[in-house]
Design a protein around this nucleic acid. Sequence first.
RNA 1: CGGGAUGUGGCGCAGCUUGGUUAGCGCGCGGCGUUUGGGACGCCGAGGUCGCCGGUUCGAAUCCGGCCAUCCCGACCA
Length: 481
Amino acid sequence: MSRLAKGRLPKQSEDFPSWYVEVVKQAGMAEHGLAKGTMIIKPHGYAVWEYIQRALDDRFKATGHANVYFPLFIPEKLLAREAEHVEGFAPELAVVTHGGGEVLEEPLVVRPTSEAIIWTTYGKWMQSYRDLPLLYNQWANVVRWEKRTRLFLRTTEFLWQEGHTAHATLDEAQEEVLRMLDVYREVAEDVCAVPVLAGRKTAAEKFAGADTTFTIEGLMRDGKALQCGTSHNLGQNFSKAYDVQFLNRDGEQEYAWGTSWGLSTRMVGGVIMTHGDDKGLRLPPAIAPVQVVVVPIYKSDDERSGILEVAGKMRDALAGNGVRVRLDDRDQHRPGFKFSEWELKGVPIRIEIGPRDVASDQVVCVDRVVGDKRQLATSEAIASMASLLDGVQRALYEQATAFREANTHEVSSYDDFTDGIEEQGGFWVGGWCGDPACEAKVTEDTKATIRLLPIEREDPGEACLVCGKPGLERATWGKAY
RNA sequence: CGGGAUGUGGCGCAGCUUGGUUAGCGCGCGGCGUUUGGGACGCCGAGGUCGCCGGUUCGAAUCCGGCCAUCCCGACCA
């Protein structure tokens, strides 16, 4: 809000970071907490998260998972058992050393993720292959002491779900990993209208403790990539670290095969940066807390009561059809103010009802995505609202997809690549020899990273973009949040 | 961790260089009235230990010292 005219946002194209922060605040999504890097999620932001939660949770249940809850605190020693895991997370742990006014004998770590506590417990829950698979998820908060934080995108404490499963075979585990990756893809694309690429992380980018990490990656409107969700094949790393064995069909003790997968409140940031424009948020109807706002327009008190009555009927009719509708009957604001405010908050469709409309039994209907104003008969507005909302949902997805396609480039020359990614951002696809040194060189030269590789390795059919040796993988590079 | 800022009613800021009596302004908030088809206006009103601690001084938002906290950029980041 500082240095800005009243109620104005910075232009997205001129200062994306400022635009983002101001949209988050002005739209009432979130604000900074008192401790560094923490976030207060406000009603509008939390409601969006709740719709994402519900979409995920329904799919988790439909794929055979149940919810559980594990404790926030983890004995420090427990975390240390998986070497790569502890090394990966050690720098960003919050550790509790005091409790009840006394120094704790053993410090407690505030979970940065729950593999340690869950795998310790899973050992008690399985005896034989008949107990498997264990298919559990938890909705929780986790804490990672990041140096650099941003509302929704990287906060010290964040909300997420973490699925943790144990299987009798590697094949089953791998199937699970890809099944949940696809759930993420579906929720991102069909619910959040955020087109994503699904793929596999390089060794350098994978989760600390996983054999393989899979990811969905979106492309934000500033040309930077956002990792929206990850699904990990843990192999037997955690079962070995926490000694989790079961008796297999052949009567032998075997370490269980694990997966974990998570999607966080970061996704809300992804929605904001994928769809938002200079006027503010544009929320996909599937996750919009308010899908339709009805704004009454009147000049006198006499008009007011009549208009509000008609507007109230419109609200009731839409609500009766299952539409999330709000009648903005605040008398202290004029229509123009309300228009701007609801646009800022990203409401997909606005209905205006004034004296002229009442006289002719129609309403003005304005679409947040295309922005066109049209007059509809009252009955038609009610009857067609579901399809109008579908249209907005589809239009957002199509616009975002078109943006990503326009900003995805096949490249074979290293100079074209480094110049291009510097100037335009976006996804750059080319060959990679598989050598971590080449991967690191790109990051050093451009700050870009390999966002993903195909789920199954593909022959790129061309040389490594960096060193010119035969390509082993088809890599997608990008600068990321 | 490096660099740059900031801390003054709910929010955004000014005042500090050059110390001085009731610490201002805009927005917002409450009341009344006029307004209402793209961010209305008038009048009245409420609201502040000037981040914290100490020092200098007759007197500190202002000068000095220390501390704390947050934000931004970067490095780091499953």
